[in-house]
Amino acid sequence: MNEIYSTVIPQAPYIIGAYGLIWVALLGFVGMVFNRLRRMEKELAVLEESLKRREQA
């Protein structure tokens, strides 16, 4: 039994590394895009507001 599972512990860091990497990359991508989207939405709102004010003036 021990013999059979002897590979698991030494191989574990690489498997964890691979899965962790995918997790972090996917989450990072989504987070980054959402962050930029939110910022741009804010910017858009400000610009539209100033445009409206200018049209009224």
Binding site: E3, I4, Y14, I15, Y19
Partner: peptide
């Protein structure tokens, strides 16, 4: 593996 030990690294395949 052919010698019966567990091929844990194969798990990377799924992703």
């Amino acid at each position: 593996y052919p010698d019966g030990r567990v091929d844990f690294a194969q798990k990377i395949f799924y992703f």
